[in-house]
C-alpha cells in the first residue's frame, strides 16, 4: 500500500508502540496489561510497518525469523520455571527479587515468565502475518 500518510505515521508510531508494549508488559502483574497484550501490541506495530512498506522492509528491520522469537519466549518461560529448582524450591515456585525498582516495580520469576509470553505471542503473531503476506506475493 502506497499511502504517504500511513508511511509517515508508521515511522513515528513504530517506536512509540514498541515502548508502549514494553510498558504494558511490566505493568502486567498487578494491573491490567501483561505479556500477552504487550506481545500483541508489538506485533501490531510491526504489522503496521508491514502494511505501509511491504514484507521486505519488515524483514530488514527485523533480521531474525519470527520463529526465533517463539523459541526465545519459550526459553524465558522454562527458565523462569526452572530457576527456583536451583534454589531448592519446587518447580515453578514464584521467586522474587528483594527491593523494588523504579517504574517496573518488583522483579521475579513471574515477570520473566511474562516476558516469555510477550516474545512467544510476538513470534506467533508475526509468523502468521508473515505467512499470509508471503502467500499473496
Amino acid at each position: 500500500m502506497k499511502s504517504v500518510i500511513l508511511r509517515t505515521m508508521t515511522i513515528y508510531l513504530l517506536p512509540l508502540l514498541l515502548i508502549f508494549s514494553i510498558f504494558l508488559l511490566f505493568r502486567g502483574h498487578n494491573t491490567p496489561g501483561g505479556g500477552f497484550v504487550g506481545g500483541l501490541v508489538s506485533a501490531a506495530a510491526f504489522s503496521l510497518y508491514l502494511i505501509g512498506f511491504g514484507i521486505d522492509k519488515v524483514r530488514e528491520i527485523l533480521p531474525v525469523e519470527p520463529v526465533k522469537f517463539v523459541a526465545l519466549g519459550l526459553l524465558f518461560a522454562v527458565g523462569s520455571a526452572l530457576f527456583p529448582v536451583f534454589l531448592g524450591k519446587p518447580f515453578m515456585t514464584g521467586t522474587w527479587m528483594e527491593g523494588r525498582l523504579p517504574i517496573i516495580g518488583s522483579l521475579g520469576t513471574p515477570t520473566v515468565f511474562d516476558t516469555g509470553v510477550y516474545f512467544t505471542v510476538l513470534g506467533v503473531t508475526l509468523n502468521i502475518i508473515f505467512s499470509l503476506f508471503e502467500d499473496k506475493e
Partner: peptide, 13 residues
C-alpha cells in the same frame, strides 16, 4: 516434561 521441552526450544533456535 522439561527435557523434551528444552530440546524442542533449542531445535526451534
Amino acid at each position: 516434561v522439561v527435557v523434551p521441552f528444552l530440546s524442542g526450544i533449542i531445535m526451534l533456535f
